[in-house]
């Protein structure tokens, strides 16, 4: 679905943002693109969505080189959720969606009210101006805008930003449902939980270079110290001990009265990110 080879981009002469990055995203895959601010992830997304022109290297979407394929057909096949919920504040959520939907063929559009219902949008606000919406409600309308034309490729930038935990779970479920329909998702986020739970593969980008690409599970396993912490009771006292994972093959040999818990010391995706890049996701 997406093929990027040796992608280079510069803002002016001395400000190179991308230093020759390579990756591919398969059809129906959820691909996470993670990196700190200024790492080049927004630049990459802008090139892929046709907003930014003038790159070097090879980029193809839907099997076509993008340099020649940014036309109406291309834009009909993508849906984009921006980092901020950009909407006409003086129009209602419904009017916003009807307006943006009008640029697409009728047969491609979903029923907007059904879609908003799926996104748990409060019905009594549907005809009120966006200026009266909370951030979560604006995010729901923006998500509806990205989904309303059943795109083959979805670009999502911080999809759960501004949502309460229940809203975040709902959005993750919806993204999963879209993937099941065969939609490819290019996810840009700082939220490691989203990336961990949703992405088939993630790429870590730092200073315009991709540090690593793999599945979240592999990344965590490969960077695990293979240690396990056992919490136990012995002579009425709570104790814990760290052992090598391989030691478990022989059973728990340490003296104990009761095992309370066994924790693997698998790193979080954020730990792995810091390990590869030396930077946190700020």
């Amino acid at each position: 679905m997406i093929e990027v080879k040796d992608l280079i981009f510069s803002y002016g002469k001395d400000k190179q943002a991308l230093h020759g990055i390579d990756f591919t995203v398969g059809k129906g895959e959820i691909f996470g693109f993670l990196g700190p601010n200024g790492s080049g992830k927004s630049t990459t997304q802008k090139i892929l969505t046709g907003i930014l022109k003038g790159h070097n290297g090879h980029v193809s979407l839907f099997g076509k080189n993008i340099t020649n394929s940014y036309n109406k057909e291309f834009f009909k096949n993508i849906g984009v959720l921006f980092e901020y919920p950009y909407l006409y504040a003086n129009l209602s959520g419904l009017d916003n969606l009807n307006y943006f939907a009008s640029f697409y063929p009728k047969e491609q559009r979903q029923d907007i009210e059904v879609l908003l219902d799926r996104l748990a949008f409060k019905k009594d606000y549907i005809k009120k101006p966006v200026s009266s919406y909370s951030k979560g409600m604006r995010q729901r309308v923006s998500m509806a805008r990205a989904l309303m034309t059943s795109p083959k490729l979805l670009f999502l930038d911080e999809p759960t930003s501004g949502l309460d935990p229940a809203g975040a779970v709902l959005f993750r479920n919806i993204i999963e449902e879209e993937r099941k329909k065969g939609t490819t998702v290019f996810l840009t986020t700082h939220n490691m939980l989203d990336a961990d739970l949703l992405c088939d593969r993630v790429a870590f980008i730092v200073n315009g270079n991709i540090a690593v690409i793999d599945t979240p599970k592999n990344l965590k396993m490969q960077n695990s110290n293979q240690k396990i912490v056992i919490d136990y009771m012995l002579n009425g006292k709570r104790e814990n001990k760290m052992i090598e994972a391989s030691e478990l093959k022989q059973g728990i040999s340490l003296p104990h009265d009761e095992i309370i818990s066994i924790h693997s010391q698998e790193p979080s995706l954020e730990d792995v990110f810091i390990q590869y890049t030396g930077r946190g996701l700020l």
Partner: peptide, 13 residues
Amino acid sequence: YMGVIRIHGVMPI
């Protein structure tokens, strides 16, 4: 200010 101009950049218009 509403940021909506850039939305038109990814639409078939």
